[in-house]
Design a protein around this nucleic acid. Structure first.
Lengths: 235, 235
DNA sequence: TATTATAACTTGTATTTACAAGTAATATTT
DNA sequence: AAATATTACTTGTAAATACAAGTTATAATA
């Protein structure tokens, strides 16, 4: 098992405290020096943790004042890295498997260019539908290069998220990624799954997620129903 | 004039080098220790500059290997902080003023909650259309709290960007922000300006940008035509 | 020759120290 | 009492140092 850096554990702790409401919106976090004393680390380490929180949009830093807990986004987060979804609205975000994971060859004219090894090994394919309080919000199609992921297709995806399985069973962590966004009219299949009219505007995300494993990427094509909920992001 | 931090000047230098093609896609940047020697700074400072580049998606860091210049996004960036737009595709991104800046009271039911002082001072309102190679891409409506921005409405916006004027004339820097994204059908006005069919899917961004000036925010409602170009972002 | 170990790089994490700069409350002066 | 200066906080920037951990090329070994 890999050891977790100290700044990361502090980040996760403060993050949980904020999300659980121990620190509330507008509250001042303990000062950097106080956090140093409390958790027995030095300022650069504490600052690294706070920088991550700021990047998540959970706090805002103000020179001379302190770190202020930022308003929790009420909407659904998906634009940031994997963690955001679970951070914001796991309350009732249910997952349905539309197509169980199976190994197939890559589609032709794939949305992102593929490396030679990726093409050779084929990919693990799966489709999911994610619903918030009964309303289908995301219909996502996922492609993962079939590299060092034994028995992946036989795993259960009921409650555990895709990224959780990758992390816990294969040690795969998402490091970052890139994405394209556009608005498109819903096709017949999309409209049926998202329960909207055919031709209604749908958000389409094409993402390429990088992992800590060299050469292993997770590709997703995500269709979002934004009629009731909008996608939220900070920067 | 405020002094620019050393890590920031190095960040801007390397950024320019990457964008100008001095370092090309896939190239390895000089190692952190080399950069220290070249520019006479210490590793924490160099690392701070590299972290900013990584956050922009201009490089990817790999432990044990180095910092690799990342593929330049060919698409239009707007999801990141202000800088990205100019970074990526200022090539031919022309700006048209639809509604010249004027001071008006805030609209009722504004997209974001407003503070008391914001409501009192009213806002500077303006509409722009941005075109890429003749095709209208962005139609944006901007609201800026009318705080300490003398003679703003009389300024010329022809070539200089909104953010450039804010920075150069008023010392206002964008620090971060939040946004909501949805796909909506184009209204009559939007379709006319973006030259698409009424009802065609359009990307709608509602943004609140924070500045270094306390209490001063820039609000934008942006409609994007994503038929030809998609919006790009890294994280 | 093929394999393994070593060495020399790279970035990641962490400590310690120092001062600059912004903020807010207190104390001083007018 | 009001304006000003001081002080004590806060975060921001920067240096110098050390070791951990991942990568790659080289040297030693089988």
């Amino acid at each position: 098992m890999k050891s977790v850096p100290r700044y990361r554990t502090l980040y996760q702790l403060l993050r949980r405290h904020i999300l659980e409401g121990i620190y509330r919106e507008g509250d001042l976090l303990p000062s950097e020096n106080e956090l140093c004393r409390i958790y027995g680390m030095t300022r650069p380490t504490v600052r690294q943790a706070l920088a991550s929180l700021a990047a998540d949009g959970l706090i805002r830093k103000h020179q001379g004042k302190g770190s202020i807990v930022h308003s929790l986004p009420r909407e659904i987060g998906i634009l940031s890295v994997s963690g955001t979804t679970s951070a914001v609205g796991e309350r009732g975000l249910r997952t349905e498997i539309i197509a169980r994971p199976e190994v197939i060859p890559w589609p032709e004219d794939f949305m992102f260019p593929l490396s030679g090894t990726e093409k050779e090994t084929g990919c693990i394919y799966m489709e999911r539908l994610r619903l918030l309080e009964g309303t289908p919000i995301f219909y996502d199609i996922n492609y993962i290069a079939n590299i060092n992921l034994p028995r992946f297709t036989s795993r259960q995806f009921r409650d555990r998220s895709l990224f959780k399985i990758l992390r816990e069973h294969y040690g795969v962590e998402i490091k970052g990624g890139e994405q394209r966004i556009r608005a498109i009219p819903a096709t017949a299949k999309i409209s049926r799954l998202l329960r909207i009219k055919t031709g209604a505007p749908v958000l389409h995300l094409e993402r390429k997620l990088e992992t800590n494993v060299n050469g292993l990427y997770v590709y997703s094509s995500i269709y979002c129903n934004t009629e009731k909920y909008s996608i939220f992001g900070t920067f």
